[in-house]
């Protein structure tokens, strides 16, 4: 059961004001509960929560390296099993650690079927090192390694479909969630932790510093991502998509124009073709997952 009142991620951490990842950490721990061992990959969350000796974690927590969280978690799970212990193992890693550098360890660990929950807080770039692109960076986002310029509209590559990749490994439970829907997020974490085997939850966690918006907008922007169809909340049980969050879709432009990482699509001149391409990504999402609520014509 989700215990909304429990606080396992403490005050005093050094995240930016309005940080989506910090909120994700708090909410995830409410879903996971106190009988949890957290394994963090190197990244923003690890750094803002654990400068020695000021840990923000009230549960047992371990950080080793950037790319090995799922291998470390494999060892912890094996050890707990041998000791006959009941704690749950939860990995917290950013999208860089998950989509890119950690892939080999993740693939191995999911293939082996360890009983853990892998949570990717997805802020769509390497925020800790200064907003470089990752495999989770969306099309046309300007980052410090995929900058927009006189002959570039930013990141040319599509966002990798990690949930599908991990479902293909046989993960019994895969879900996407957003900090904009805390109750849904907490429930999904609780379900993932309760499900035996390697589970994956990818949490959309906007980054005000990296995306270029004011901290008070974090939830509003996360909501817009869902409402435009650029982020889809769903579950996959044994590889089958279910419980898709349906919306009355808004044009992607409403999401894009809120963030500096997409500013080059509007200034100095509006880039209709690029915006149309991003709209087509949302349209494909809508078709693939069936997110559209059909309104009756008046």
């Amino acid at each position: 059961m989700v215990d909304k009142a429990i606080e396992l991620f403490d005050c005093g951490h050094r995240a930016c004001g309005g940080c989506g990842a910090a909120l994700a950490a708090r909410l995830v721990m409410k879903g996971a509960g106190k009988n949890t061992i957290v394994v963090s990959a190197t990244g923003c969350m690890e750094v803002f929560s654990t400068p020695y000796p000021e840990t923000a974690w009230k549960v047992p927590w371990i950080h080793s390296l950037f790319e090995n969280a799922s291998a470390v978690a494999s060892g912890i799970e094996a050890s707990l099993k041998m000791q006959g212990r009941e704690e749950k193992v939860v990995i917290m890693a950013g999208d860089g650690a998950t989509f890119d550098i950690g892939m080999i360890c993740i693939s191995g660990a999911f293939e082996r079927g360890h009983d853990f929950t892998y949570i990717c807080y997805d802020n769509e770039a390497y925020m800790n090192t200064g907003i470089q692109r990752s495999g989770a960076t969306p099309y046309d986002a300007s980052t410090t390694t995929s900058p927009s310029g006189s002959c570039s509209f930013g990141n040319k590559l599509p966002k990798k479909d990690m949930p599908q990749i991990l479902a293909a490994h046989g993960a019994p439970y895969v879900a996407t969630a957003s900090i904009a829907y805390p109750a849904d997020l907490m429930q999904k974490i609780e379900k993932a932790v309760r499900t035996k085997g390697p589970c994956y939850v990818q949490v959309h966690a906007p980054c005000c510093t990296g995306w270029g918006f004011e901290g008070e907008q974090t939830i509003a922007i996360a909501k817009l991502a869902i409402e435009t169809g650029l982020w889809v909340n769903y579950e996959m049980v044994d590889g089958k998509v279910s419980k898709v969050k349906k919306v009355v879709r808004k044009p992607v432009e409403e999401y894009l124009k809120t963030q500096k990482r997409f500013r080059h699509l509007f200034k100095p001149t509006r880039q209709d073709a690029e915006i149309a391409h991003i709209q087509s990504i949302a349209d494909k999402n809508a078709e693939k997952y069936g997110i559209d609520i059909k309104l009756k014509k008046e």
């Binding site: 606080e7 991620f9 403490d10 005050c11 005093g12 951490h13 995240a15 930016c16 004001g17 309005g18 940080c19 989506g20 910090a22 909120l23 708090r26 004011e214 901290g215 008070e216 974090t218 939830i219």
Partner: peptide, 26 residues
């Protein structure tokens, strides 16, 4: 609250702990 610093006080009213509130405005 990303800080987890808003607490319920008597009669169910909520107040931030200004020792930790970063003033993000969320």
């Amino acid at each position: 609250c990303p800080e987890g610093c808003i607490h319920e006080e008597e009669e169910g009213f909520l107040n931030p702990d200004y020792t930790y509130c970063k003033g993000c405005g969320l």
